[in-house]
Design a protein around this nucleic acid. Structure first.
Length: 211
DNA sequence: CACCAGGTTGACC
DNA sequence: GGTCAACATGGT
């Protein structure tokens, strides 16, 4: 696992995730990017910035219809507008300084209680906002680990997360690793793979089927 | 034209 | 516990 990380870092270089100016922007981006390309999320965030709506206060006071229009480029805008309202309400009730004092498992439980925040979004926030040592075990990681023969069987979020967290404890490394796995999968591990140019070609076991 | 994207929810079994 | 359709825009 650590070897793979070094290989990826060597090949792609530091990815600099998460791209955002404030912790709140990270959280908003984490919700908006759910099953959505980052390119579309950028437009939505740009709209929110231009409207001065990138704080919990302004999103809470923003009319729902207006909020929907602002984030439209990110897709699923009806439910995501509600999710952003939920998140903002939560943050007004629980300041970041308070949340930062909680142990990771309690903070995760709190985040998961917010409608619109599931496991992956919660872990993205734990990692990129609160610097907690967690791995974001998204579908890309499952695809990559399956192709590398590290993981057999179906996609199970918690099990893949544990697999990585047992070996890697440094939040900074976990941040980069998640970003690098995404980069690898996007470029070389598509449904129609291009294993010829893959930087981990020599490690890839393609004799087995199963995503 | 079909398929994919930095998932989550609620219904159902 | 697990599975599944619905959700919506923009790029390839």
């Amino acid at each position: 696992m650590s070897t793979i990380f070094k290989r990826l870092l060597d090949h792609f270089g530091p990815q600099g995730w998460w791209p955002a100016e404030t912790p709140f922007e990270v959280m908003v981006g984490a919700i908006l990017t759910q099953n959505t390309s980052w390119k579309n999320v950028e437009r939505a965030i740009e709209n929110l910035k231009n409207a001065g709506c990138l704080t919990p206060e302004r999103i809470t006071s923003c009319p729902l219809n207006e909020l929907r229009e602002l984030i439209k480029p990110a897709g699923f805008y009806n439910q995501k507008a509600l999710y952003l309202k939920e998140l903002s309400r939560f943050l007004l009730d629980h300041p970041l300084e308070e949340l930062a004092t909680l142990p990771t498992h309690e903070l995760r439980r709190l985040l998961l209680s917010i409608k619109g925040i599931g496991k992956e979004t919660a872990d993205s926030i734990l990692l990129y906002v609160f610097n907690r040592p967690v791995f974001v075990a998204d579908r890309y990681s499952h695809r990559v680990f399956s192709r590398l023969g590290i993981w057999r069987g179906p996609y199970r979020y918690e099990e893949i997360r544990s697999l990585v967290e047992e070996e890697m404890k440094d939040p900074e490394e976990l941040k980069e690793f998640h970003a690098l796995v995404v980069e690898l999968a996007k470029n070389y591990c598509r449904p129609q793979p291009r294993c010829d140019a893959c930087p981990l070609k020599d490690l890839c076991s393609f004799n087995r089927e199963g995503e």
